[in-house]
Design a protein around this nucleic acid. Structure first.
Lengths: 182, 182
DNA sequence: CACTTCCTGAACATCGTGTTCGGTAAAATG
DNA sequence: CATTTTACCGAACACGATGTTCAGGAAGTG
């Protein structure tokens, strides 16, 4: 790919990231992004059709980094071993989130938060998949799924909202303590 | 208050409610609301400064209905009695939500969903208050609060998103089964 | 019947969006 | 190198939504 394209692309990403630290996405103007990135107006529109598309592509890229590097565990037939692997996997994801703290925190306001939830939720359905079926509670599996995944995402959002104060390990421990109640 | 004011006010509310059934709040135009309400442009702006203010006031009114009629239980010193009262209170709220199904469902998209969460969360902090301190898990009380309230709101959102298929009683039962794991 | 308050709607200024296009600079090609 | 292709630039433009203003008409009040 042309170097020039790369340059403007990252200039735009960097500009948006910087602006997102100060205000919500919906309050940021295309012109501001253009000025911050120091590019021409038509250049912006030759790269992205709209401001929303920019956000989506930027998130796509970021989340694929966060999640793709977190490989799914091999599924053994031993449930408790699986359970430990799941905890390790989730903790691993939290570490990745911590790595991208700067970008993720700024995205977690306004409309863009929903993108996060959607991505995360899709990913977790796979991760939690058969763990959920092993939970022995007398409620529909749909409800179980909603409860387990929803409360996990919530917890992560809460963690991010508080500036990632605790360590990933602490969060995972606390979450499973609340969920499993051994 | 002047009857005319009342009329235009409810005309505006009704118009917005109707439009919200079809698209998200952020995609609705002031002019559309005006046309749907069949009022003059300047009339709208003499009642509300902006579109957002309209939404906020409308939600204020609705949520105060939903929650104000749900009185807090008297706090006894018997925890398990308190617990039953809490379940009854929560079920009561869900019934109120069901009553306002039409309005609430349309509000639960886009930015307005956050208003719901904020209101609900504030209300639940009171409701769950001392119940949370009685849960014996070795995690910080902040975390407990986040987990309990967050997962409840999630559940309710999920319920609403699915068209309030189950009965309030079923939802409360399922929620407490997952939470308490007796 | 006065008198006050509210509604009306056209006209206007303002702002953000997205497009167009002739010109310039920088890569790629051979 | 010389040539061709490609990306960037930015001013100008059309468009649509927002919010304000104001003079005149309609509806409540006493």
């Amino acid at each position: 790919m042309d170097r020039r394209q790369q340059k403007t692309r990252t200039a735009i990403y960097d500009a948006l990231t910087k602006l997102l630290r100060k205000r919500r996405f919906e309050d940021i103007t295309v012109q501001e992004i253009i000025d911050e990135a120091n590019i021409g107006r038509s250049t912006f529109y030759s790269h992205f059709e709209t401001k929303d598309q920019l956000l989506e592509q930027m998130c796509d890229e970021m989340f694929s980094h966060v999640f793709s590097e977190s490989l799914m565990p091999e599924k053994s037939h031993d449930f408790s071993a699986n359970h430990e692997e799941l905890k390790a996997l989730l903790e691993h994801i939290l570490w990745h989130i911590k790595d991208h703290e700067d970008n993720i925190s700024s995205i977690m306001h306004g409309e863009s938060e929903k993108l996060f939830t959607r991505y995360f939720s899709g990913y977790l359905e796979d991760a939690f998949g058969d763990m959920i079926s092993h939970i022995d509670i007398d409620v529909s599996s749909e409800f179980k799924k909603q409860f387990v995944i929803g409360s996990f995402i919530n917890t992560v959002k809460w963690w991010i909202g508080n500036g990632l104060t605790q360590s990933p390990g602490e969060i995972i421990d606390a979450y499973f303590k609340c969920l499993v109640r051994k």
